[in-house]
Structure formats: structure tokens, C-alpha cells
């Protein structure tokens, strides 16, 4: 029910792609490379998890990249200039971003506005606010940052599973459980199936909308903290376009852009596919890194076409039945 066939196709694409890469560069098939891949894409994975909920519910969140940018600047300034303890700064920015998401959700519901427009406004707001705080890159030198950066679990084969990769995996598993096993998760699918119908069936549509965008922004804030660990700096221009990368990961992962179907695990596979292409280009060394975007674009087209085909197939039996009644 929850989009398994598309997810299987994504998994096959990943495995076959990884196999091809490993045939050309045998070194790719090592825990070292895989560990780095997880670390490099940790923040995208976290944001894309939240985006999965939003898209399954029939919405979209364009503000996440800006929220990441704002978070890095806010955290850097709080720790380095305002002398706030890092943990307090983290809690503050998480509360702030959750409130930001809740506000967007409330606007979407109360004024019955398209999520695209509301989160587009949110995107400009958050990006503008981060420039207001600082236009230049602020390096973070707090000891907790070097501690976290140094921490890693050793994997067999010499790979390192870094702290931020672990955070990403924990959030991912949490996202899978939340979507699959809880009433909240069922309601997310219900909203994607039809807001009016879901409302008639007793789902508190307004509350759900607010919670979903709150979750997305909260995860974007988390991704911002992770990004600040990754770069050890806060910069208002960081993570530009990440909202589009995460939407791409969600769609490649088999989630229907129109809502109602999809899975977090598929999104994770989508993130890995994008990371794999990036890794391949790094190994090749001669290709421009923009080939990542081209490959992502081709995959997006392929998956959207595939989804349309599946949707058409799913609709057909119903149509035949209605016509045969006599």
C-alpha cells in the first residue's frame, strides 16, 4: 500500500548503480566510502525525512534550505559572539524553527493557501533573516564542535560512522516508525488522500497541517545544527537549493508528489542515490561536479514518468468496472 513497488525500483537502481560504480572503481565498495557518503549527506537525509511527511500529506516545504542557513548563522553567532552555551543555543534554535514551521502550517490551514506560496514566503523570510544576522561566514571554535567532529564509530574495513551520520540514521529510523506505526502517520497519508474527505472522517486537518510543517521545520533546524558540525561554521548562504535536492530525493524514493503514497525508507534510498552519483564523480576526477545535477534530473524525469504510469494502471480497473454496470 505504501508505495512498495516504486521503492523496490529505487532500491534496484541504487544496487545496480553501486555495482557499476564498484566495477569501475573497486575502492568505492568499502566502508570508508560508504561512511563518508553518509556523513556528507547527513543533513540532506534529515531534511528529506521531514519533506517526506510534507509531500505525502499533499504539501511541499520550500523553506527548509533557508531554515538550515539561518540555523547555522544563529548557532555560530550564539556560541561565538553572544556567549551562549552550545546546548542552550541548540534548544533555542530548535524551538524557534518548530515555531516557524507551525506558523507556516497555521497560515496554510487558516487562510487555505497553497503550501507552495506560503513556504516560498517562508524561504525568503528565513534567508533574509540570516543575512540580517550576519553576511559573512562565522567560524565556530567551541570545544564541543571538535569533540563531535572527532567522534566516530569504527566500522569493519576502516570506515568511520561519524556522529552526524549516526544522528541522521536515528532520525531516519524515528521517521520510519512515526510514519508507519502511529496514528499521526496514518493521518499524514489520509491528508494526502484528500483533505476534505479526511476532515469528514474525523481527522483534525488543521492540527495535522500545523504539526506536519512543524516537524519539517524542526528537522530542518536539526539539519542546520548538523550542517554547522559538518562545516564548523555558520554562513547565511549555506544550503541554498537543499529544499530542491530533498524534494528530488523524496520523489526518486517513490513518494507521489501529489501526496497519499510514499515512504521514508524510499527517501533515504533517494538520498543515497544522489550521494552515490556525487561519489562516482569525485572518484572519476575528470567530470564536472555538475553532472550530479544532470544525473539527478534524468532520474527525476524517469521516476515521475514511472509514477504516472503506475497511477494510470491503478485507475484502470475502477474505470472498467463503472462502465460495465448495467
Amino acid at each position: 500500500m505504501k508505495g512498495l513497488p516504486p521503492v523496490l525500483i529505487t532500491a534496484i537502481v541504487l544496487v545496480v548503480g553501486f555495482g557499476l560504480c564498484a566495477m569501475q572503481f573497486p575502492n568505492i565498495a568499502s566502508t570508508r566510502v560508504v561512511g563518508n557518503l553518509l556523513t556528507d549527506n547527513a543533513f540532506v537525509g534529515i531534511v528529506a525525512t521531514g519533506m517526506t511527511f510534507v509531500i505525502i500529506s499533499g504539501g511541499i516545504d520550500l523553506s527548509v534550505g533557508s531554515v538550515i542557513g539561518f540555523t547555522t548563522v544563529f548557532v555560530a553567532l550564539a556560541i561565538e559572539r553572544w556567549g551562549v552555551p552550545p546546548l542552550v543555543a541548540f534548544v533555542a534554535i530548535l524551538v524557534l524553527s518548530a515555531a516557524f514551521g507551525a506558523a507556516m502550517g497555521a497560515v496554510i490551514h487558516v487562510f487555505d493557501l497553497p503550501p507552495f506560496i506560503v513556504t516560498l514566503a517562508g524561504m525568503f523570510l528565513a534567508r533574509g533573516a540570516s543575512f540580517l544576522l550576519s553576511t559573512e561566514s562565522v567560524p565556530i571554535t567551541a570545544p564541543v564542535y571538535s569533540t563531535v567532529s572527532d567522534f566516530a564509530l569504527r566500522m569493519p574495513g576502516g570506515g568511520r560512522l561519524s556522529a552526524i551520520a549516526i544522528i541522521m540514521l536515528v532520525i531516519l529510523i524515528g521517521g520510519i516508525l512515526l510514519l508507519r506505526l502511529t496514528r499521526f502517520g496514518a493521518n499524514v497519508y489520509a491528508l494526502g488522500g484528500g483533505r476534505a474527505t479526511a476532515s469528514l472522517m474525523g481527522v483534525a486537518v488543521g492540527k495535522m497541517t500545523i504539526k506536519i510543517y512543524m516537524l519539517s521545520s524542526l528537522l530542518a533546524g536539526t539539519a542546520g545544527i548538523v550542517f554547522s558540525f559538518y562545516t564548523s561554521a555558520g554562513y547565511s548562504l549555506s544550503a541554498v537549493g537543499v529544499e530542491l535536492d530533498s524534494i528530488a530525493a523524496v520523489v526518486i524514493g517513490g513518494t507521489l508528489l501529489t501526496g497519499g503514497q510514499g515512504s521514508v525508507i524510499g527517501t533515504f534510498l533517494g538520498v543515497l542515490i544522489q550521494g552515490m552519483i556525487q561519489t562516482y564523480i569525485n572518484f572519476d576526477g575528470t567530470l564536472s561536479s555538475w553532472w550530479t545535477k544532470i544525473a539527478t534530473g534524468i532520474l527525476l524525469f524517469a521516476f515521475i514518468a514511472l509514477q504516472q504510469g503506475l497511477v494510470a494502471l491503478a485507475r484502470r480497473p475502477v474505470a472498467t468496472r463503472a462502465g460495465a454496470a448495467s
Binding site: 500500500m1 506505526l181 502511529t182 496514528r183 502517520g185 496514518a186 493521518n187 497519508y189 489520509a190 494526502g192 488522500g193 484528500g194 474527505t197 479526511a198 469528514l200 472522517m201 474525523g202 481527522v203 497519499g260 503514497q261
Partner: peptide, 26 residues
């Protein structure tokens, strides 16, 4: 007025699923 993308069971019990520890007892 039901949701075609949800399972029959979810449609019957949407928003009143049997729960244990915050988890739907599928």
C-alpha cells in the same frame, strides 16, 4: 467519501485505531 490510498482497515478505523503505547496495533 473514503480515502482510496489507505487500506480498507485504516479507512474503517481512521483516527480511532486500536493503540498500545502510542503505536497502532496493526
Amino acid at each position: 467519501n473514503l480515502l482510496p490510498n489507505l487500506s480498507v482497515a485504516q479507512n474503517l478505523f481512521l483516527d480511532r485505531q486500536p493503540m498500545r503505547f502510542g503505536i497502532v496495533r496493526e
